[in-house]
Amino acid sequence: MTAPVRTWPQLLATLLRGDDLTADDTRWAMSEVMDDAHEPVAFAGFLIALRAKGETAGEISGLLGALMDRVTPLPVDGSQVVDIVELQEGQKVNFDVTQGQKGPQAENITTA
């Protein structure tokens, strides 16, 4: 079975009808952006329509999946790991990234 053909107009039409996209739809959209194979106006329309409709967990999962496909893991030995599980919803974290002996590291970590 072949994967369905996706286009920006198809995704926009679905969103403008108020229908949800699949995780595969949003993964395709973000992959197009990451591959620089999109028209900026189409992507802007997509984001506005998605936000106006309201994002579902599946839609966000697809967007994140495309990003995670391109992640380069950083080695972490666990000695300087920051636990941010205690944050309250909407609370922000500020930090500086510096180059350490073993690679990038976060310093001056504060909550806002």
Results as ranks from 00 to 15, higher is better:
residue 4 P to L: 08
residue 5 V to N: 08
residue 5 V to I: 14
residue 6 R to M: 04
residue 8 W to A: 09
residue 8 W to G: 01
residue 9 P to Y: 05
residue 11 L to E: 04
residue 12 L to W: 06
residue 13 A to N: 10
residue 14 T to R: 12
residue 15 L to C: 08
residue 15 L to F: 00
residue 15 L to S: 03
residue 16 L to V: 10
residue 17 R to C: 04
residue 17 R to Q: 11
residue 19 D to T: 05
residue 20 D to W: 08
residue 22 T to W: 02
residue 24 D to V: 05
residue 25 D to G: 04
residue 25 D to L: 01
residue 25 D to Y: 04
residue 27 R to C: 10
residue 27 R to V: 10
residue 27 R to T: 15
residue 27 R to W: 13
residue 29 A to S: 07
residue 29 A to T: 02
residue 29 A to N: 04
residue 30 M to E: 14
residue 30 M to T: 01
residue 30 M to D: 03
residue 31 S to Q: 07
residue 31 S to V: 04
residue 34 M to I: 13
residue 34 M to C: 05
residue 35 D to R: 11
residue 36 D to E: 13
residue 36 D to W: 13
residue 37 A to W: 08
residue 37 A to P: 01
residue 37 A to K: 15
residue 39 E to N: 13
residue 40 P to L: 01
residue 41 V to Y: 07
residue 41 V to D: 14
residue 41 V to R: 15
residue 43 F to P: 02
residue 43 F to V: 14
residue 44 A to N: 07
residue 44 A to R: 09
residue 44 A to W: 08
residue 45 G to W: 12
residue 46 F to C: 06
residue 47 L to T: 14
residue 47 L to Y: 09
residue 47 L to G: 14
residue 48 I to T: 15
residue 49 A to N: 04
residue 50 L to K: 03
residue 51 R to P: 02
residue 51 R to H: 14
residue 51 R to E: 11
residue 52 A to R: 14
residue 53 K to N: 02
residue 54 G to L: 05
residue 54 G to D: 02
residue 54 G to T: 02
residue 55 E to Q: 14
residue 56 T to M: 04
residue 58 G to C: 01
residue 58 G to Q: 08
residue 59 E to S: 02
residue 60 I to A: 06
residue 61 S to K: 04
residue 62 G to E: 02
residue 63 L to K: 08
residue 63 L to W: 07
residue 63 L to Y: 03
residue 65 G to V: 02
residue 65 G to N: 00
residue 65 G to K: 00
residue 65 G to E: 02
residue 66 A to D: 02
residue 66 A to S: 06
residue 68 M to S: 02
residue 68 M to Q: 01
residue 68 M to G: 00
residue 69 D to W: 01
residue 71 V to P: 00
residue 72 T to A: 00
residue 73 P to D: 06
residue 74 L to N: 01
residue 75 P to N: 04
residue 75 P to R: 08
residue 76 V to H: 10
residue 76 V to M: 07
residue 76 V to R: 07
residue 77 D to M: 03
residue 79 S to T: 05
residue 79 S to L: 09
residue 80 Q to S: 10
residue 81 V to H: 03
residue 81 V to P: 00
residue 82 V to S: 06
residue 82 V to H: 10
residue 82 V to F: 14
residue 83 D to W: 03
residue 83 D to H: 05
residue 84 I to M: 07
residue 85 V to D: 09
residue 85 V to Y: 04
residue 87 L to W: 08
residue 88 Q to R: 12
residue 88 Q to F: 10
residue 90 G to K: 03
residue 90 G to F: 10
residue 91 Q to A: 15
residue 91 Q to W: 09
residue 92 K to T: 15
residue 92 K to M: 13
residue 92 K to A: 13
residue 93 V to Y: 02
residue 93 V to D: 03
residue 94 N to S: 14
residue 94 N to T: 14
residue 96 D to S: 11
residue 96 D to H: 12
residue 96 D to R: 09
residue 97 V to R: 01
residue 97 V to Y: 02
residue 98 T to L: 11
residue 98 T to G: 06
residue 98 T to E: 06
residue 98 T to D: 06
residue 99 Q to S: 13
residue 99 Q to W: 10
residue 101 Q to G: 13
residue 102 K to D: 14
residue 102 K to N: 14
residue 103 G to P: 03
residue 104 P to L: 12
residue 104 P to E: 13
residue 105 Q to A: 15
residue 105 Q to V: 15
residue 107 E to Q: 15
residue 108 N to S: 13
residue 108 N to R: 15
residue 112 A to E: 13
residue 112 A to H: 06
